[in-house]
């Protein structure tokens, strides 16, 4: 499975760099710090869909399965790759959140930056899981890709709104909100993985 994760990383190396540079430039230009803790990992979570596009373009899945790579391993590698991309986004977002205030001459609220970044990481894991599940559910046709984008946008909008509502309900306690989101993320990951495997195992390649 390491080879499959490595493959996705190599293929998306340029995408990783572009998004990282975009994130840093955006926050410097607009002097946004804490919000990068959410935006950065969210941007990196979109790379999951790109890895599917590469695989479909080359017919890679058909070759890999034919050569004896188990289908579940292929699905698992997608989740692993996404987790790595999101974590890279988390690190960059956190670094920007911590560094930006010192560049603008304001005080760094380290705890706030960490909590926001962790929340961003958890939200992005959920979004990446949904993205992977939708890709396995809908397949690789053009229509399916549009459906995938719509579902993803709706998911992001819902999650962000739900987070804001939950924050209000929990009296602004972001730790509790993040903990609740973490539970959702674990459930989402498990469910998305099992459903993705079930769909992929029933597909002719």
């Amino acid at each position: 499975m390491n080879g499959l994760v490595w493959k996705d990383t190599v293929l998306l190396k340029n995408g990783l760099i572009y998004i990282a540079v975009f994130g840093v430039v955006f926050s410097v230009l607009f002097r946004e710090s804490n919000v990068m803790g959410i935006v950065c990992p969210m941007l990196f979570s979109s790379l999951a869909a790109s890895s599917f596009a590469w695989d479909d373009q080359c017919g890679w899945n058909m070759y890999a399965v034919s050569a004896g790579v188990p289908r579940r391993r292929i699905v698992k590698s997608k989740f692993m790759s996404s987790a790595i991309f999101v974590t890279i986004g988390f690190v960059i977002g956190l670094a920007v959140s911590v560094a930006m205030p010192s560049l603008t001459g304001t005080e760094t609220d380290l705890i706030s930056a960490v909590i926001v970044s962790v929340t961003g990481w958890v939200l992005s894991v959920i979004v990446a899981s949904i993205s992977i599940l939708v890709n396995y559910w809908t397949g690789s046709s053009i229509k399916a890709q549009y459906i995938s984008i719509v579902v993803l946008m709706a998911s992001i909008a819902f999650l962000v709104s739900a987070t804001i509502v939950a924050s209000d309900l929990l009296g602004g306690n972001m730790l509790l909100v993040t903990a609740a989101l973490l539970v959702v993320a674990v459930l989402m990951l498990t469910g998305a993985y099992e459903i993705s495997c079930a769909r992929f195992e029933k597909r002719d390649l």
Binding site: M1, N2, G3, L4, W6, K7, V10, L11, W54, C58, G59, W60, M62, Y63, A64, A67, G68, V69
Partner: peptide, 21 residues
């Protein structure tokens, strides 16, 4: 038809395969 990724080279293909087989 070749199902390997066009932006990869032979060395990278070999490295990827080494963990699959």
């Amino acid at each position: 038809e070749c199902h390997f990724f066009p932006q990869m080279n032979g060395r990278q293909i070999g490295r990827m395969m080494s963990s699959l087989f």
